[in-house]
């Protein structure tokens, strides 16, 4: 029996209906008004700089989130992969556990924690800070985004490191490499596929995030996703909203292309999901 047939409902029903068709709708709304082809929306989006600050904010938040997640996530994954399998399983479960909860609930929890009457502000005041402001700042958005996406960085790196051939490390030691050299020349290059997956899984969704910044940014931080949401739900400007969505899609495609290049140039083989 060809098991691939099991995927037919997904490939021939789900994907065309819920992935391809919506993309076509986005294209249609971006280039047609009342059935007539138009470039008005594209001209409108690119002729002024109104939407540029929100786009730059989004790129900045996504980059910062990715860098912090990588800096924190890699060591975590590395430590996990060197632990006994039972304690590693327990710890990795603890990392995944927040994902069992709905993202909105986690964001609401952050809202309560970071609020002016929340525990963190009170602690800072007790430590002598005057009028600490956490909620409705870019920092609040960044902290919650990092918290949301950290597991997506740890898991792929952990998976790759776990499968690493231990004998290679032993061989490196036998050949006289110290632990720093072993890490930089043996472990790190082999974990590139995990890093690339992690970066993609963190960078791409955090680029388009908007719920976190709506709840924790109070419009003091406008992200590109919020602008798009507003165009559809409030402004009733589907043409402009679709064009902005296309801009985002193109940017994501470019970043994925760059990541693939990086992966190929480092000479690593398969193992990523992209």
């Amino acid at each position: 029996m060809k098991r691939s047939r099991m995927a037919y409902p997904y490939i021939f029903v789900w994907m065309p209906l819920f992935i391809v068709a919506p993309l076509l709708f986005v294209l249609y709304y971006a280039f047609f008004r009342d059935g007539q082809f138009t470039t008005d929306f594209v001209v409108q989006v690119f002729s002024d700089t109104t939407y540029l600050p929100a786009l730059l904010n989004s790129i900045w938040i996504a980059l910062a989130t990715t860098v912090v997640c990588l800096l924190v996530g890699y060591p975590v994954a590395y430590i996990l992969s060197n632990m006994k399998s039972r304690s590693a399983a327990l710890l990795s479960m603890l990392f995944i556990m927040p994902m069992w909860m709905n993202m909105l609930l986690r964001t609401i929890a952050w809202k309560i924690l970071l609020d002016d009457s929340g525990i963190i502000v009170r602690l800072l005041e007790w430590l002598g800070m005057e009028n600490p402001r956490l909620i409705y700042t870019p920092g609040a958005v960044l902290v919650a985004t990092i918290y949301d996406f950290l597991p997506f960085m740890i898991l792929p790196i952990y998976t790759v490191l776990q499968k690493l051939d231990r004998s290679l490390i032993e061989a490196a030691h036998d050949l006289g490499a110290n632990s720093r050299q072993t890490f930089l020349r043996v472990v790190l290059p082999q974990s590139v596929p995990g890093i690339v997956s992690g970066i993609t899984m963190v960078f791409v969704p955090s680029m388009s995030t908007f719920a976190v910044s709506t709840m924790l940014g109070g419009k003091n931080v406008m992200l590109f996703g919020q602008v798009i949401e507003q165009k559809f739900l409030i402004g009733n400007q589907w043409g402009v909203g679709s064009t902005l969505s296309l801009v985002l899609i193109v940017l994501v495609l470019i970043s994925m292309f760059i990541m693939r290049r990086v992966e190929r140039d480092t000479g690593s083989e398969g193992g990523t999901i992209w």
């Binding site: 029996m1 060809k2 047939r5 099991m6 037919y8 409902p9 029903v13």
Partner: peptide, 11 residues
């Protein structure tokens, strides 16, 4: 038969 099973699964 196998084909039948996969169609059934889809349905």
């Amino acid at each position: 038969m196998k084909k039948f099973v996969s169609v059934l699964m889809a349905v």
